[in-house]
Simulated assay, not measured.
Amino acid sequence: MLWVDKYRPKTLDKMIVHDDIAQHLKKLVTEQDCPHLLFYGPSGSGKKTLIMAVLRQMYGASAEKVKIENKTWKVDAGSRTLDLELTTLSSTNHVEINPSEAGFQDRYVVQEIIKEMAKNRPIDAKGKKGYKVLVLNEVDKLSREAQHSLRRTMEKYSASCRLILCCNSSSKVTEAVRSRCLNVRINAPTEEQIVKVLEFIGKKENLQLPPGFAARIAVQSNRSLRRAVLLFETCRVQQYPFTSIQAIPPMDWEQYVSEIASDIMQEQSPKRLFMVRGKLYELLINCIPPEIILKRLLSELLKKLDAELKHEVCHWAAYYEHRMRLGQKAIFHIEAFVAKFMSIYKAFLIATFG
């Protein structure tokens, strides 16, 4: 088992990071009827860990007994019937789904599937009616129509269902949805907190950490706890005992993006663009989010550019990122950015060197 799963805190009492938020949530769940919750914060900050701990606080160990299902739902969309396939993670008391997986059909997921789930009210051993919890991931990627439908579901089924929403940015969640939830901001952990977690894991695994080694991993993790633990385990696999000058390897996909940036800088041609497209597809099919690919690619290209080009390249990266969020096929927009960059860079080289 990966350390990131092995040492994930299972209860609110065992949180090393965000322990103050954990205690507040424990009080909220224990003492009163829990409201709808919206967890938001950067990737790797610990949102999912807190959500799972909240579910365990509500339902005990049964919240961890989950099954994964790929289910096809038949949804009535006016004049036609749609088949929507969704992956659900469920226990007896909660269901976790990512409605944005349905793309532009996400509103049908919210209007029909979530409504159907919300109707079924669980009954405990004493015959008392409880409430089901629906965990919805990436709600910031839902369309406006889907979010409006979600608001109505939250109001109508609040007696039988509680929603726990999870996203990276609350600014993309409508005010109507946010106002019906208790908003919980999960900040990225500080480097000191990451060091504390790495030292805790090192102690559990009986590892000797050289002075400053955990701090170097924390710096390279970019304040993502998940990434820090993965880097730590990678270092352990590559070389142990650790040394104070041991190299901390970049993630494989980051190395791959760096190679793509080098390919783009070496040659600007349709043939090279076609080759780069194949590499971008490789990243996308390995589940690297397109926004992350574009951001990392921009970062790698900026390292190799003259100062006078940086502003223009950043402008076009922002433009295509915005277009990507509005569109459906991420590859089109990333490829369009690469083509635009090649055009700008080639014109710059011709103007400079003739």
Rank of each mutant, 00 (worst) to 15 (best):
V133R: 05
F39V: 09
D19E: 03
V229H: 13
A307W: 05
A176C: 00
A214I: 08
K65M: 04
P42M: 10
V229C: 12
R56Q: 13
E300Y: 05
T11Q: 01
V197S: 14
L37P: 00
L225Y: 03
D33E: 14
V313Y: 10
Q220F: 09
E335L: 11
I68H: 11
M275K: 04
I123H: 07
H24M: 06
L150D: 12
L2I: 06
R323Y: 08
L182M: 08
S79G: 09
D76F: 14
L165A: 11
K303E: 12
I164V: 10
S224P: 06
D306T: 07
E101D: 15
S299W: 04
L150E: 13
S171E: 05
V110Y: 03
E205T: 00
L37C: 04
L50Y: 06
G41C: 10
L163H: 13
N93C: 09
G41S: 14
A307T: 14
Q57D: 01
C34L: 12
S62H: 04
C314L: 10
I164D: 03
V276L: 00
D306W: 02
S299A: 08
N187H: 02
A330V: 08
S79Y: 11
K48Q: 15
L297N: 03
Q57A: 03
A261C: 05
P189S: 00
I68V: 13
K132M: 11
T92M: 07
K47L: 07
Y59L: 07
K132A: 08
E85W: 07
D13A: 13
Y131G: 11
V133D: 08
L142E: 04
I292S: 10
T92P: 11
M15C: 06
P35Y: 15
I260K: 00
R178T: 05
K203R: 15
E112C: 12
K71D: 00
A22T: 04
C166E: 10
V229Q: 15
F353V: 13
L309P: 00
I344Y: 08
R56F: 05
I344R: 09
A218K: 06
R152E: 15
Q255R: 14
F274T: 02
F353D: 03
S262G: 06
K340R: 11
E233F: 13
L273S: 08
V110T: 13
P9A: 02
S149I: 04
A351K: 12
F39P: 01
P270Q: 00
A347T: 05
L301W: 13
A228K: 04
K129T: 12
F232D: 04
L297K: 15
D140R: 01
T88V: 09
G46W: 05
A125E: 09
I217Q: 08
P249N: 01
V133M: 06
D5W: 10
Q32A: 15
P9N: 00
P270I: 01
